[in-house]
């Protein structure tokens, strides 16, 4: 007889796992039995349809406390003044904060605006959104097209393009700051090559260019991945038919790829647009909004007005954030409509 052999299992002695499962079952049954009478009573009172509200209630309570209430508070702050935090200490000022923000002789000349910093931020944001979204969509599309082709080590390249998306925005900004600063890597390379040092982060134009570049670099992988999925959803037989007909490649691109990719492309445009309007973290760490206010965008304006300046102008910041919310809401509705249209067609 083998002394190491396991003894035959005794069906009368349950294993630890069985004991745990049995205990859990008992506890669960006990709990259910305990809950049954009160729920039955509620159901009897409000009917089976009303029970849906009972089950949705916990989620709605959490949503109300953490989403709806802050939104209402934000509206209230936008309608009140002073630098005080507590509601009871803030006088009602009506639409004063909005009129202060919108008080401009010429919206294209920020110096004619009462809140010039707000309008500088708006102008910067509009330019940033236009440049960043264009570059983002174009480069993501090119990347997706390349990655969708017959490429050696395709999986590796997909990972390479997606990798920056996984990095924290602060890490992205610090890496690029290290590269672009006065004594950074790029200047070292330029000078080693006999070139002149360039003020990448303290010249207004360069600084703006790099905010766009870094933001595209950091997020392009995400949009390229969405477009890649869109490209792979296009039936291959369409391309095969075009090939048999001898259709030129550019024509295939414009007549097959673009029309069938359009719904995905529009989603990418809207998503990158919303994200570009919200740009803050990377840029705040990379340039701090400088030099001057050359790279200060709308979210940084709101943050600094509400929290960073010595006098916390919470009302003004709340009003500005509501204006941004309206813009974002329009963009979101647009995205939903496009998605709906894409599905139905």
């Amino acid at each position: 007889m083998n002394p190491n052999a396991h003894p035959p299992s005794d069906s009368a002695t349950p294993t630890a796992a069985q004991r745990f499962a049995r205990g859990f079952e008992l506890a669960y049954t006990g709990l259910m039995r305990a809950l049954e009478p009160p729920f039955a009573a509620i159901q009897k009172r409000i009917g089976i349809k009303g029970m849906a509200y009972v089950f949705v209630a916990p989620n709605m309570i959490i949503f109300s406390v953490f989403v709806a209430l802050p939104m209402i508070l934000n509206i209230w702050y936008a309608l009140t003044g002073s630098n005080r935090l507590m509601m009871e200490e803030r006088p009602f000022v009506g639409l004063d904060n909005f009129s202060a923000l919108l008080d401009c002789k010429d919206y294209l000349d920020v110096n004619s605006c009462k809140q010039d910093r707000f309008w500088r931020a708006v102008h910067n944001s509009v330019l940033f959104v236009a440049l960043q979204v264009t570059a983002m969509v174009a480069l993501s599309l090119v990347t997706a097209l390349i990655l969708n082709g017959k490429l050696r080590a395709r999986g590796f390249f997909r990972a390479v393009f997606f990798f920056p998306v996984l990095l924290s925005p602060v890490v992205v900004a610090l890496i690029w700051k290290w590269i672009l600063q006065r004594d950074g890597l790029l200047n070292a390379l330029l000078m080693a090559g006999g070139g002149e040092r360039v003020a990448f982060l303290h010249d207004a134009s360069w600084s703006f260019f790099w905010t766009v570049f870094v933001s595209v670099w950091a997020h392009m992988g995400f949009y390229a991945l969405i477009l890649l999925a869109g490209l792979q959803a296009i039936p291959a037989d369409l391309y095969e038919a075009a090939e048999m007909d001898g259709t030129p490649k550019w024509r295939v691109f414009w007549r097959i790829t673009v029309p069938l990719l359009l719904p995905t492309l529009l989603v990418v445009v809207i998503l990158s647009l919303i994200r570009a309007v919200q740009a803050f973290d990377e840029i705040y760490v990379l340039t701090g909004g400088g030099p001057g206010t050359a790279t200060q965008f709308i979210v940084q304006y709101i943050y600094e007005t509400a929290f960073a300046n010595q006098v916390h102008l919470l009302g003004l910041a709340a009003a500005a954030s509501l204006l941004v919310a309206v813009v974002l809401m329009v963009l979101t509705v647009l995205q939903l409509r496009i998605s709906y249209h894409g599905k139905t067609s």
Binding site: Q181, H202, D203, T287, G288, P291, T293
Partner: peptide, 15 residues
């Protein structure tokens, strides 16, 4: 003075 110091941040940020 170099713009690299004051120019590297914006607003009222200390540098």
């Amino acid at each position: 003075m170099s713009k690299a110091l004051w120019g590297s941040v914006g607003g009222t940020t200390y540098r």
